[in-house]
Design a protein around this nucleic acid. Structure first.
Lengths: 132, 132
DNA sequence: CCTTTGGTTGACGTTAACGTAAACGTTAGG
DNA sequence: CCTAACGTTTACGTTAACGTCAACCAAAGG
């Protein structure tokens, strides 16, 4: 029942990325596809990691930052020291993300206010907007 | 009382950016410092815009995306058509940001869970963590 | 007058994150 | 057997967002 494996083409289809991107991520040790002969096979784990990568990118994290975070999600066997470092790094990232969320909340509020302003200005000029 | 003007050095100090960055942003038409002779002078408006730029960058927006958003915050005189477009673009961005916030919320929850897991693992190994 | 201090304009260098093209292997169908 | 379809490696190209360096100007202080 090794049907959980996917070829590179299927991966590209599923996650809307190019082969180049997947090979690049492998080279950067973000994912670890196995080989069947020459060809790459992507496991469920690879897919989970890819999801996190794409998510991380949306938040403006660099691939290197993401790579470190990813380790947190697969810390079965590591030595305790390494694990502790990873753990602390993740805490930092968490603070990062919570801070970003705060900021984002504020920015959204600001933007909404501006939009309201735009509303009235456009209304004053007699422009009808598409009802949301 | 034109004391609201700041030199490039003061700007760098205040916002922790390099002169190069500010000149670059000017070249990209993100900010519009005036000149006193040769030297750039940054107004309150420039500062507000810079703040938004730096904020936007933290959320992973490109400078080009930011440039377009910035227009929303200074739409005094524009023609109505242009204004409408800007307005709609801003709505899109807003949806973007709210979506990002959602995602971020989820990601934070996930990460917290993982950290809890790390907690117990480390505890099992007898590692004492710095009390938060 | 001379030298800091702070600013200027090019112009080339750099890093991240891929894109793109060349040249090749390997099944599967007609 | 030929040729698509799908995959591979190697290597150079590209874009964004600045960094870095050289050569220069100008006001202010000793």
């Amino acid at each position: 029942m090794t049907d959980s494996m996917m070829t590179i083409g299927q991966m590209c289809e599923s996650y809307d990325v190019t082969p180049r991107t997947l090979r690049f991520y492998e080279a950067k040790e973000l994912i670890f596809p196995t080989r069947e002969g020459q060809k790459r096979l992507f496991s469920k784990s690879d897919r989970a990691r890819l999801k996190l990568i794409l998510q991380g990118k949306r938040f403006g994290f660099s691939l290197e930052e993401i790579r470190q975070l990813l380790n947190l999600y697969s810390l079965g066997d590591q030595q305790t020291t390494q694990l502790t470092k990873t753990y602390e790094l993740a805490q930092e990232r968490l603070r990062d993300m919570e801070e970003k969320r705060e900021e984002l909340t504020g920015a959204i509020a600001d933007l909404k206010e501006q939009l309201q302003w735009g509303d009235t200005v456009l209304a004053d000029r007699g422009v009808k907007l598409a009802a949301e």
